[in-house]
Design a protein around this nucleic acid. Sequence first.
DNA 1: AAATAAAATTAGATGAATCTAAAAATAAAA
DNA 2: TTTTATTTTTAGATTCATCTAATTTTATTT
Lengths: 220, 220
Amino acid sequence: MKKLSFAEENYLKAVYHLSGAGESDVSTNAIAEEMQTKAASVSDMLRRLSEKELVIYKKYQGVKISESGKKSALQVIRKHRLWEVFLVEKLKFNWDQVHEIAEQLEHIKSPLLIERLDDFLGHPKFDPHGDPIPDENGEFKEKPQIPLAEVDLNGTGIVVAVKDTNPLFLQHLDKIGIYLGAKTKIIDKVEFDGSMEILVDSKNKLFISKEIAQNVLVTN
Amino acid sequence: MKKLSFAEENYLKAVYHLSGAGESDVSTNAIAEEMQTKAASVSDMLRRLSEKELVIYKKYQGVKISESGKKSALQVIRKHRLWEVFLVEKLKFNWDQVHEIAEQLEHIKSPLLIERLDDFLGHPKFDPHGDPIPDENGEFKEKPQIPLAEVDLNGTGIVVAVKDTNPLFLQHLDKIGIYLGAKTKIIDKVEFDGSMEILVDSKNKLFISKEIAQNVLVTN
DNA sequence: AAATAAAATTAGATGAATCTAAAAATAAAA
DNA sequence: TTTTATTTTTAGATTCATCTAATTTTATTT
Ligand SMILES: [Mn+2]
Ligand SMILES: [Mn+2]
Ligand SMILES: [Mn+2]
Ligand SMILES: [Mn+2]
């Protein structure tokens, strides 16, 4: 595992995420979109990552992450999520404030640091957004989770994660009282626009839009 | 205060340190030595820093840090030292292990992060090596400190800082039992080679070399 | 299947930050 | 005060990461 630049780490993370944990192929444009950059820059970086065998790349055919690329990506993701836990649990940040800072902290190179940080935090298994934290070997267990939007009428669930980490979305959840661990019950579904009415913690009745319902993930 | 690159921040810190808190002029070679780089690279960077008015630079005449440069340098130093405290106090690192990691962490850009970190640590005034931590405005108080080498025979002092942060030096101090806060008394001085015999905490007798005596700082 | 649209790559530039080698300025020695 | 040595700067390359514009490949429509 050679030492990668910030840019290389960011690209690997993007490829990993867009491919759904490294399964499917990813398009150049999708990466450009995700990374707020231009397709030409992506092509160039993919060529370089390919030379280092961090991705499997055939021109015009999309890209897949390689085994060693996946390993690197997962370590960066591990660091990102551990730092997010630190920021929320120890420094009292709100969950909508931590992503940007973790984007910087995830590139700090020190295996010992991350080991100690993990100890200090008590080996958390999930980050403040409900995303699983890979261990030193890149392994992790996903909680079974489905979007509220797909829960049946009268079905219940506990909020375990959010799909989007956009600060505005997270702030909105705060405002209406949805948080990780909240108990939900679907009390009405509107076919027409995908919105629904839910009961949170058996006491707060809420109307939520389709967008919200698709981005809040629950488990039974 | 514009956002600076890692390299720019590192150069500013070097100029600040080498000039003794921004007083005297600094030579190109001194900077190159300190930063493990070539004089040509330094000249080039000084030109760029000068254009941004972070340093006052006249070709062939050495360089001084400007007021705005000093402000930036002190913020980086503040971050460096706060992170060092975090690593030692919270993550249980030894004082010889933290400098390298802090060299990376000091470049994380988030005023809120550093404010929260400072709160979390209880607003420490000194880092694990006894160096003062500047506040948000770049202000700090230095403890009066003199090298053990300059203490008179039979004189006493409390160890308040170390001049060098080389891991080997710090590990050696650990090994012989010198630490911040240790009470020292000079019980013999050898004119010939500058070495001395000291009594630590009224119970451990130690012989220390001139090099050690010059790099351990005490206060009365 | 040919024409058109979309996606991806290449060509060529640019800005940091670095380097080596050569030239210029300053300092030290004879 | 010349000469020599040292220090510093410039000139010219290189690597990384990015961009715009042009070209090529692949996909979609007539
Ligand atoms: Mn995040
Ligand atoms: Mn997260
Ligand atoms: Mn340090
Ligand atoms: Mn320190």
